[in-house]
Design a protein around this nucleic acid. Structure first.
Lengths: 147, 147
DNA sequence: GTAAATAGGTCAATAATGTTGACATATAAA
DNA sequence: TTTATATGTCAACATTATTGACCTATTTAC
């Protein structure tokens, strides 16, 4: 009886993850649509924005996708002038990625829409609940390694 | 200065969602691979398992995809004997979906792998943190409607 | 100095997942 | 009887991903 209740709670947690994540990505997806871009482009913009002068292999390690999968969306972002590529001075094999002014503008719009959404939720639940949420999410993110 | 720090924290929260969700789906994806199935099949199995005798339009409303997108994966699950379809007695237009014994076995395996992952995290952070996590996720899931 | 490792680019074939449009049937409700 | 609902399916297309193959540079190791 007790165990059944717990199982139901854990199932609810599964659904919370599914629906929360969907709600979280919806706004950015909507903005991206206006630019004819997808989530792949968003992830590139986000991580390059977060870590300027990121090398391509670092981006691949972060996203955990093949270089072939990265190729098309990155090439497009470069072609459209949202991302700039520069050869590293220390190692002429590696190329460093940066957001251009236009790229930064879009990244900022996307990130702001998501941070605002999160800030609104956090402001309602308070700082302690936010901390607890972060703790759970961090452990969950880490649980890949325990696989 | 204060605002900059907060912005950094909110960006961290974005990443927590991304990495936690990825870690969360990884195990199920791994199991599904052995059966040659994908996430689309998983979602069908999950929700039909959660709500036996679910009508197809209810499933479509839940997943928020087109009937054409549902068609192929559902047809396959039925063909492989994981999901059964039955015409409703009260309305002969609607069809009710159920997991077969085999379907239930797979769904159970998938759900158990995820509930165990969540239970492990929850056990480490304690019940209060779990409650806070649920509160944040529920509000985040709700924030679709505020769009 | 040559071989091997690293960083990156690109083509092809294939797959999963999604979309919109079009058109079909069967049943229920107005 | 008309209309709305529930479902099914075909086609064309887009996005995101995979593996395999093959290519050029550049750096590092022996």
């Amino acid at each position: 009886m007790v165990d059944l209740k717990r199982q139901s709670e854990l199932r609810e947690a599964i659904e919370l993850l599914y629906f929360a994540y969907r709600a979280f990505t919806a706004r950015a997806d909507h903005i991206l649509e206006h630019h004819g871009l997808g989530r792949a482009h968003h992830r590139i913009l986000y991580f390059v924005g977060r870590h300027p002068d990121m090398a391509i292999h670092t981006l691949l390690d972060t996203l955990k996708i093949s270089k072939q999968a990265l190729n098309a969306p990155l090439r497009r972002l470069v072609a459209e002038g949202l991302v700039s590529v520069e050869t590293a001075t220390h190692d002429h094999r590696t190329k460093l990625l940066r957001l251009t002014k236009t790229g930064h503008a879009l990244e900022s719009q996307l990130t702001t829409s998501q941070t605002e959404q999160l800030a609104e939720v956090f402001s309602k639940v308070g700082r302690d609940a936010e901390k607890d949420w972060r703790q759970v999410m961090a452990r969950l993110a880490d649980s890949t390694k325990t696989l």
